[in-house]
Amino acid sequence: MNCDSCHNENATIYLTQLVEGKMQKVNLCGNCAEEKGVTDPTGFDLADLLEGAGTETTTPAVVVGEDGESCEFCGFTQVDFKKTGRFGCGHCYQVFREGLDNLLEAMHRNSEHHGKVPEHFIDTAPPEGSDLTSGISDLHALLDEAIKIEDYEEAARLRDSIAQLEDVDKVLGEEPKKPE
């Protein structure tokens, strides 16, 4: 069996990965495997190796931050984020706030944290609109919008998010608050 990358050498490394519900297989020779860094079975994306296959897997096309913006604390720039998909430090989440919620909605179908809060953050008042119900009403507004512009795929996704959130709402409602 020949290497799927260079087509010259004999393949010695056989990779299988589940991408979007389908099993994908790639056979590589030792050199190509090393070159592509796939001696690491958990840390690579098979889709990246397969030309043209599932290239839009991780980063959705959402612009985060403004052109030329950089973090005063760590020096991280918007270009760095485009390149790596990661931030430089905690402050970056404030600096590059522009567009961030869209990115998070695409990733998590949500843009607000619900869950554990460090103890010294608990006593102070919660930020506006951080409770679950407003999260749901936001989504309802987005849903109406999606239906209006006939983006039914987006609408279906929003409907699912709402159902899931309402589920969480129920669970949370029954849960006693952390004793404090």
Binding site: T58, G85, R86, F87, C89, G90, Y93, Q94, L100, L103, L104, M107, H108, N110, S111, E112, H113, H114, G115, K116, V117, P118, E119, F121, P126, P127, S130
Partner: peptide, 29 residues
């Protein structure tokens, strides 16, 4: 363990975004 570490180490936390992580795919919890 997280509670114990939190009492000693100043975690990066945001009221809106939760626990701040290098990659936004891990953000929140």
């Amino acid at each position: 363990i997280d509670d114990e570490l939190e009492s000693q180490l100043p975690y990066a936390f945001d009221r809106k975004y939760g626990y701040l992580t290098a990659c936004p795919t891990n953000l929140g919890t």
